[in-house]
Every structure is written in structure tokens, then in C-alpha cells.
């Protein structure tokens, strides 16, 4: 599904990723943990193609294609989805409108017919019910005035609607109450399938109780410094990152 080889990336001229290797097979869930500022979000932006995140070395293959050559929207069309650590507010644009544009844009990439407003609304109603999202939230402007937890739920709603092949969740669990955490986990678990992969970036073992990862990686100083099974997350919970940060410094 995804193969990252010796990835080096800079942000604002500053080296953040320094030789990152990661392989995510189809159907797998990988968790990435690591200290603040270690480059987790940077990795997610590089994968989704954000301007200003410059790759200086290495390559990324996604479904056998060179991901780094693709425009952000083409990546989304090819099934790469990023749940943002900080979802963005778009004043004046009703959430429904935004969601419909996104769904139809992605459908176009896939060669599927676009949905008219009525058909889309039908789909939307089903999804928001599953995710326990209120009507009010889809009528309001995108993320404007949403609480932290509501924004995260809205990300999961988008994920559910866009049906990605590779979902990257950047700290989607931060700021969620227990119920919301379960909803998010349910959303992700519902997506689990042999042809789909998930990259979960998190600081907390708790989320991984619900979304059980196949692999856990520690990202420090711009590299994967350790990989293991789900028990690695438990270990980190106890020991913290001191061992890795010291070692890699």
C-alpha cells in the first residue's frame, strides 16, 4: 500500500524528517507515536502534499505509484485521506456543501457519477446517524465554532464519506471524551478491510485499546527509531520517550 524510503523533508528550510523508512501493507493498521515536535504531523503533510513541506531526499510509493509527484487533490482522489490534527474553519461555507463538493470531487477521480444534492443528503443522513453527529453540525459553516471534539468527529465523518484506501489520523483522539473516542474508533474499525490501511498518529495508548494496531512505531528526531507490536505502546506509556530521545540525539 505505502512504502516510504529514506524520506528527508524540510519545513521552512529546517530539516525535520531525516531518513524515515516505513512500510504499510494493505489491510494493516500502523500506529506512530513520538514526542512533541518529532515530525509526526510533518510526515502526514508530506504524504498529503502540503505546500512548504519539501522533500529533499527519498521516495514514497503509494499503490505502486510515486505519491510525491501527485497534486494534493489527486492524492485525495487516489484514496489518501488525512484527518487533520487541527481541522480548518471555512466561514460562510455550509458543512453540507463542503462535504458534497468533496465527495463529488473524489467520485470524479474514481470515475463514478457525481451525486445530486438529494442523493448526497441521503448518504449524509446515514453517516451522521452512525457517527452520532447532530443535524446542526452539518448545517453550520465548516468547523466554525465547533468544539474541539466536534471538529474531530467532523473529520471522521469526512473519512467515512470519502471512503479512503489510506487514512492518516493525526491525533484524532486528542481532546475527545470517552464516548467520542469510541465513536472515532468505531469509525476507523468500520473502515478496516483487506484493501485498506490506516496510519494512526497518537500520544496515547488508550486509543489503541479500541483501534488495535498491527504495528507500532516510534518517531523521534525525524526517523523511525523503534518498531514493534501493540505491546510497544504499553511499554511507552510506562517509560516515556527518554530512552529514544537520548539515544537519537
Amino acid at each position: 500500500m505505502l512504502e516510504i524510503k529514506n524520506l528527508h523533508a524540510t519545513v521552512g528550510g529546517k530539516g525535520i524528517l531525516k531518513g524515515l523508512d516505513l512500510k504499510v501493507g494493505a489491510g494493516e493498521v500502523h500506529a506512530i507515536m513520538g514526542p512533541n515536535g518529532s515530525g509526526k504531523s510533518t510526515l502526514s503533510y508530506v504524504l498529503s502534499g502540503r505546500d512548504g513541506y519539501d522533500v529533499t531526499e527519498g521516495e514514497v510509493l503509494y499503490q505502486g505509484k510515486n505519491l510525491l509527484d501527485m497534486e494534493p487533490e489527486a492524492r485525495a482522489g487516489a484514496g489518501v485521506f488525512l484527518a487533520f490534527q487541527y481541522p480548518v474553519e471555512i466561514p460562510g461555507v455550509p458543512n453540507t456543501t463542503f462535504l458534497r463538493e468533496a465527495v463529488n470531487a473524489v467520485r470524479k477521480f474514481r470515475g463514478e457519477p457525481t451525486l445530486d444534492p438529494m442523493a448526497f443528503l441521503k448518504l449524509l443522513r446515514i453517516k451522521i446517524k452512525e457517527l452520532g453527529i447532530t443535524d446542526d453540525l452539518i448545517k453550520r459553516a465548516v468547523n466554525v465554532g465547533f468544539s474541539g471534539g466536534e471538529k474531530k468527529r467532523n473529520e471522521i465523518l469526512q473519512m467515512a464519506l470519502l471512503d479512503p484506501a489510506l487514512a492518516i489520523l493525526d491525533e484524532t483522539d486528542s481532546g475527545l471524551d470517552i464516548d467520542a473516542l469510541k465513536t472515532v474508533a468505531d469509525g476507523v474499525n468500520a473502515l478496516r478491510a483487506p484493501d485498506r490501511s490506516v496510519l494512526v498518529i497518537t500520544h496515547y495508548q488508550r486509543l489503541l485499546d479500541y483501534i488495535v494496531p498491527d504495528h507500532v512505531h516510534v518517531l523521534a528526531h525525524g526517523r523511525i527509531v523503534r518498531s514493534g507490536g501493540k505491546e510497544l505502546a504499553q511499554e511507552l506509556e510506562k517509560t516515556g520517550y527518554a530512552a529514544f530521545t537520548g539515544q537519537a540525539a
Binding site: 502534499g49 502540503r50 488525512l82 487533520f84 461555507v93 463538493e101 468533496a102 470531487a105 473524489v106 469526512q158
Partner: peptide, 21 residues
Amino acid sequence: FYCRQRGISQEDAVALVVNGF
């Protein structure tokens, strides 16, 4: 970028954001 990450082209993203404005 948020729009483009959702598959919306640069031009459509501009139109969407400006219409919101």
C-alpha cells in the same frame, strides 16, 4: 489545502472559500 486534501481542485477551492466569504 484543507479543501484540496478532500479532493477539491485548487480553482474550486478558491471558489468555495470566496463564496463563503
